[in-house]
Amino acid sequence: MAARQPRFNQHVLIDTTPLPDDIPKVKEIGASSAPLMSASFFIGARCKPYNDDYMMCKTESNGRGELECMKEGRKVTRCAASVIEDINKHCLTEFRRHWECLENNNQQLWNCRSVERPLNKCIFDNLKLEKTVPGTPEGEVPVHLRKKQIFAMHG
């Protein structure tokens, strides 16, 4: 016997079991996979402290992180939404061109470098966020800044 009665209808579209009020409310991110992939390095550039904070909270709460770190998680969501909002405000055409290219090329970044460069430049000029690839060895040109690319289908 199930403790909760299942609901199988299309009419009750309100949250019948909302979260308690002490958890701050937040709107979920509305961007889908390709725009998120396109914006990922800039989200990382602006939101690194929040993300690290959330991961540290989850590590320290011994498996109950999903419940206890909701406040930190809200900050992560809000910060990512702010980055996407700013990109939409300042660099919408470059952003759209890049994520449409990504969506057409199996979401592989190395296939869309030629449309990524204007996006990186526009975001650096307007938002002061720079794409850095974590884990690049010292003294080596990062993969998105190399002059010569050996193989790409789109270019």
Binding site: D15, I29, P35, S82
Partner: peptide
């Protein structure tokens, strides 16, 4: 799972959108 999320956001497995905030009802 990201494609499943795209389907929940746009109603289509390959649909894409760049809204910063999800439409109402997404979390449900």
């Amino acid at each position: 799972q990201m494609m499943e999320r795209d389907r929940r956001l746009t109603g289509f497995m390959r649909g894409q959108t760049d809204r910063p905030e999800a439409p109402p009802g997404f979390e449900l």
